[in-house]
Design a protein around this nucleic acid. Structure first.
Lengths: 112, 112
DNA sequence: AATGTATATCGTAAATATACGATAAATATT
DNA sequence: AATATTTATCGTATATTTACGATATACATT
């Protein structure tokens, strides 16, 4: 009954799944898009363009921060959030590797 | 509370988030790896190499099928599962686009 | 026909995620 | 100093996910 089997999987599988999970909610995709594409980084501005309560946005920001995808720095009363390029690049690379490896191997074997 | 705000987001955001969520569990990454890299496609074989009960594996297979990432065909008593190349390619492409777009725009602006 | 095998689904328990309002803390403005 | 603004966190309700065993169904084997 909902026992956690997390550590029965390979490190790479857990890592990839965790990253996928971090972006596995439309709000978090939307936040990343806002941070990248618009001239917005102050929390209040993010909240303004999001169809969610402030506390909920804060929670999603926390998730993204936990995954290392964004960094948050306090500037007076305001909080400034930015995409963490290093982590973002690292993980986009890992995803690419996973996709490419899967595609390459699939090209060889073919059972159904 | 826990009201569903899903339809307040853009279609592309929902689509991307759903795909991410589909691979947002180590078991599902592991299943995809098994299907791609090993000569395995029969459900029983997948269950054998997975640290989970048969019913749980079946549930994860259902999730992957729901996302369109795999197809399942019945062959006698056995069920054969395979990666759906079309969907897999389509989504790996969408992910790439998202990552690349984000990176490109990030290259231009820089606030923190 | 009886028994075994494979697998999806049901029921259910527990854990986690999602969402909100209220509040606290810290800074900014009047 | 009093008030307003910004934001993280707490408490909480509800929804969803994860996991299992039991069971049902369908085919295979004896």
């Amino acid at each position: 009954m909902a026992i956690n089997k997390r550590d029965k999987f390979e490190k790479q599988e857990i890592e990839l799944a965790d990253f996928a999970k971090a972006i596995g909610h439309p709000a978090r995709i939307a936040i990343l898009k806002v941070l990248a594409q618009k001239d917005i980084c102050i929390c209040r501005e993010i909240v303004k363009v999001m169809p969610l309560a402030q506390s909920t946005v804060s929670q999603h920001l926390k998730e993204l921060r936990k995954a290392g995808l964004i960094t948050g720095t306090i500037d007076g009363v305001k909080s400034c959030y930015c995409i963490n390029r290093t982590t973002f690049n690292k993980f986009s690379e890992k995803f690419n590797q996973f996709f490419n490896k899967t595609k390459t191997v699939l090209y060889k074997i073919n059972c159904c």
